[in-house]
Design a protein around this nucleic acid. Structure first.
Length: 859
RNA sequence: GCCCGAGUGGCGGAAUUGGUAUACGCGCACGACUUAAAAUCGUGUCUCUUACGGGAUGUGGGUUCGACCCCCACCUCGGGCACCA
């Protein structure tokens, strides 16, 4: 059945490559460098399925071609092994997560090695290795000890901020921070206690302490990630494991001020060669919107309620204001709200509502704040104020003004019969419909509002003119808001990097110095939840005694900078030597799943931008080119999962068909970035292809191949080279299949030509090509041979076949020589036997010739 | 709901980006080899029509000498966000 013994051959060459260091990366120096990176895997307990290697195979092919093209290639692999699944796996199997990781890494490495990857394993990194996370901790401290200077638009050392405070206070500091800080002068600063200084600085630091709501499960005694909770049939949130109730609980956390980089994370995308869809996802995630901040004065009160809006052009028709239940206006002005008890009741209700309930768009609820009204700055008309939970405390200013243009405002008004209006220039039919309804609902209370002099303008013009006009009265200003929030950088878990900070009795925080890093995770007997919601570290006496921070870092910490560590993986003095970073520089080609668009790919850009600001790396963006491999689905079209029992293990495929077949098949299935269903039926085609290649070898001779075959060969070399460059592996393989079919048909194939073919096939099928190459007497590895060049002269055809159309329909074919004049080609076409019946006796209106493609006769 | 992307044979897909639609592979059918089967090789394989020809790239329209490709509307599927003002 088998034409060659793949098991024997593959094992033999894998050993040989290892022995000879064929894929070893050279030290910095050589001018042509190429950094080809895979997203490193999370080594789970179940090992790889056939979907996982798809991306790795693609990048491996790319790396192999680049190596043959003479580049010094950095193509490493490592493990991202901190995080929840390892902890859960360990809990389940009653072994230490470190042990579990060790075992899983072994499995992964074995599975990867039998597929024939060309990694330089001496560059391997593992995020859970203290020698690695020493530097994750160090970067954290660098971020912690920095603030964002908006004027210079870069991060700076916190020490510089302190000296500014000492000289002139914070009045002139233009920094990005979430909380409004009180203004103080130098003298006041100096008078602050240590604790006061600490809390002021915390508002500026790029990593800061704060509080946030978490999913707290009392029965499990632990905080749960969103992945670990589900909604039961009654609509309550419960733990996935056990189905215990889950409630919201405020917890002390650490945050990363990623919002400081929001603009740069958008603009930085411009120069990246990434798919538009990933760029789009990131832009939407950051959610930049430009608008205006409008002040509504509260009647009989000195207060003003600020509203963020992108539609200030609709302000003339704003008839009421809605604020979020979390808005601090309510608590500050209890006394003037005449129906406060009713309001309080509503706030209580909202608090107990599940998120799902709150997000039910069709059921708007709210309560009017009686006794309170505000003045519309554009019309000077009095407006009632409502509180409603569809307004989010966390976006904009937590307040909106309502007008009929907005569906939500309209729904609210309709439900509670609040007068609503619409500006005289409704922008589309939907709004016109609403205006009609308004008249019905409110018995004439809904009115068209004339926005006067602004009415003839385009929306954009009106927006900027109105803002300008109101700003002269200090009632509005232009502003920009983002959807993205600061990232929580803490987990109440054991299996993560310890945060290298200490809290003393007086709540003063000190940071560890580099010489004291790494702060190693203590070896504990029980890494199970301790029941308070804090991390298991809070139950370690020696840890608490030292005052160490009990939160650990989240899963994305270690993966946010690993691409830098590969450049210099065992350096103990710095995270990577400057010389290495300068040389390897930006990652030229990054391959991985699109599911990391709003996680890893954003966080690592953030960290890299920060490291750039601090002068540690010479490039702003970490990944120049990004390719997202599509998922391989199971034969049933679903995701491969143990749950569906539809997982295909690559080990079995390698065993039955060989690694080369697996590689060729996975690349041939379809476009690299497209998700495709696995088909064990179809894989045989790839195996047949390799069998045919083996058989072809028997046919090779010293005699020169004929010209036609040479032509096909050189065209194929060109096609394969270009296709690998653009990662169109499926068409590269199909063109090689065509070449093989031609070679089979040919009388004779020269050894020289066959070898060239083996070379372009080598990145796809490294084992069999190496075997045949060596059988043909080559002593050095095919993978170190220079990439073949196509001969330009051999790929031009002197005569070509083109189609002749009549009125756009193909009626015949002619063979022409390319240097023939347009005039004579047209004449040949008009005389073509099969064409004549279609044009005979008709007036020829036009004859169009597209060079080398087609002649179209219009009659 | 909003923002992306995609719809091509029985199946995975190709099409030089506006120029001969269905390459390559799987499957299927027939044939050769074989006592037989597997493997291998050969031939065929969008559809209607005996043929001449006609019709097909989710549906309907448009632009063009010419449209899978561009424009408009709709349908279906996939991805992202989701009461974001």
């Amino acid at each position: 059945m088998k034409n060659y013994d793949h098991k024997k051959i593959e094992k033999k060459w894998q050993k040989e490559w290892e022995k000879n260091g064929v894929y070893k990366t050279l030290n910095p120096g050589k001018s042509k460098k190429m950094y080809v990176l895979d997203m490193f895997p999370y080594p789970s307990g179940v090992g790889l399925h056939v979907g996982h290697p798809r991306g790795y195979i693609g990048s491996d092919i790319y790396a192999r071609m680049k190596r043959m093209e003479g580049y010094n290639v950095l193509h490493p692999m490592g493990y991202d092994a901190f995080g929840l699944p390892a902890e859960q796996y360990a809990l389940q199997h009653k072994i230490h997560p470190r042990k579990a990781v060790e075992e899983n890494v072994k499995t992964f490495k074995h599975q990867l090695s039998i597929i024939g990857m060309s990694y330089d394993w001496s560059k391997e990194v593992n995020t859970t290795d203290p020698k690695y996370y020493k530097w994750t901790q160090w970067i954290f401290l660098e971020i912690y000890n920095s603030w964002y200077d908006k004027t210079k638009n870069k991060a700076r050392k916190i020490d510089e901020l302190i000296s500014i405070f000492e000289k002139s206070g914070n009045g002139k500091v233009n920094a990005v921070c979430n909380i409004n800080t009180e203004i103080f002068n130098a003298k006041e600063w100096k008078a602050f206690s240590k604790l006061e200084k600490q809390s002021v600085l915390m508002k500026y630091r790029l990593a800061y302490e704060g509080y946030s709501e978490v999913n707290w499960c009392k029965e499990l005694g632990t905080v749960l990630a969103n992945d670990e909770i589900v909604t039961d049939d009654k609509g309550n949130i419960v733990s996935e494991r056990g189905g215990y109730p889950v409630e919201k609980k405020s917890m002390r956390q650490w945050f990363m001020r990623i919002t400081a980089y929001a603009d740069r994370l958008i603009s930085g995308l411009d120069n990246l060669l990434w798919s538009d869809s990933i760029k789009e996802i990131q832009k939407n995630w950051i959610g930049k919107s430009e608008g205006s901040l409008v002040k509504f004065s509260v009647k009989n009160n000195s207060e003003k309620i600020e509203v963020f809006t992108t539609r200030i052009d609709t302000i003339f028709s704003g008839t009421f204001l809605v604020i979020a239940p979390e808005h601090n206006f309510i608590q500050k002005n209890k006394s003037i709200i005449t129906n406060y008890s009713e309001v309080e009741k509503y706030l209580e209700e909202v608090k107990n509502k599940t998120d799902e309930d709150r997000m039910n768009k069709d059921n708007k609820t709210g309560v009017e704040l009686k006794g309170v009204s505000v003045i519309n700055p554009a019309t000077n008309k009095e407006m009632p104020v409502w509180v409603a939970d569809f307004v989010l405390g966390s976006y904009g200013t937590g307040a909106v003004f309502a007008d009929a243009h907005d569906k939500r405002d309209f729904d609210m008004a309709k439900k509670y019969n609040i007068p609503l209006s619409v500006s005289i220039k409704p922008d589309n039919d939907v709004i016109f419909e609403r205006v009609k309804k308004l008249e019905e609902c409110f018995e004439g209370k809904g009115i068209l509002f004339n926005s006067g002099e602004f009415d003839g303008m385009t929306s954009d013009e009106a927006r900027s003119k109105i803002t300008e006009w109101l700003s002269t009265k200090n009632l509005a200003s232009k502003t920009i808001k983002y959807k993205m929030r600061d990232a929580i950088f803490a987990r109440q878990r054991y299996w993560g990097e310890p945060i290298p900070l200490k809290h003393d009795k007086d709540r003063l925080i000190t940071d560890l110095k580099l010489k004291n890093l790494p702060l190693e995770l203590p070896n504990v007997k029980s890494y199970e939840p301790i029941g308070t919601g804090e991390s298991p570290l809070a139950g370690v006496k020696s840890w608490i005694k030292e005052g160490y921070e009990t939160n650990t870092m989240p899963g994305w910490a270690g993966s946010s900078w690993y691409f830098l560590r590969y450049m210099d993986p065992i350096n103990g003095k710095v995270f990577a030597a400057k010389k290495n970073i300068d040389y390897w520089n930006i990652v030229d080609m990054y391959v991985g799943g699109a599911e990391h668009a709003t996680g890893h790919l954003l966080y690592s850009r953030f960290w890299n931008n920060f490291l750039y600001d601090m002068g540690y790396v010479p490039f702003r963006e970490p990944f120049k080119r990004l390719k997202n491999q599509g998922m391989i689905l199971a034969t049933d079209g679903r995701k491969m999962s143990k749950r569906w029992n539809n997982v295909i293990n690559p080990d079995d495929i390698v065993d039955n068909y060989g690694a080369d077949t697996l590689r060729v098949y996975e690349m041939f299935m379809g476009p690299f970035d497209q998700s495709l269903p696995w088909s064990t039926e179809s894989i045989i085609g790839s195996r047949r292809f390799i069998d045919k290649v083996c058989k072809l070898k028997e046919k090779t001779t010293e005699i020169k191949s004929d010209l036609e075959l040479e032509k096909v060969l050189h065209k194929t070399i060109k096609k394969v080279t270009e296709d690998i460059e653009s990662m169109n592996f499926n068409t590269a393989i199909s063109s090689m299949m065509i070449l093989v079919n031609e070679m089979e048909k040919a009388e004779n194939v020269s050894i020289k030509d066959f070898k060239m073919f083996l070379q372009i096939l080598a990145p796809f099928a490294p084992h069999i090509t190496e075997e045949l190459w060596s059988n043909l007497g080559e002593k050095k590895s095919i993978h170190k041979s220079p990439w073949p060049k196509w001969d330009k002269k051999k790929i031009v055809d002197d005569t070509i076949k083109i189609a002749v159309q009549v009125n756009g329909k193909v009626r015949g074919e002619i063979i022409i020589s390319l240097d023939e004049s347009e005039e004579s080609i047209k004449n040949i076409a008009l005389k073509e036997e099969k064409v004549i019946p279609w044009i005979e006796g008709k007036e020829i209106k036009r004859v169009i010739y597209v060079k080398g493609r087609i002649v179209n006769i219009v009659v």
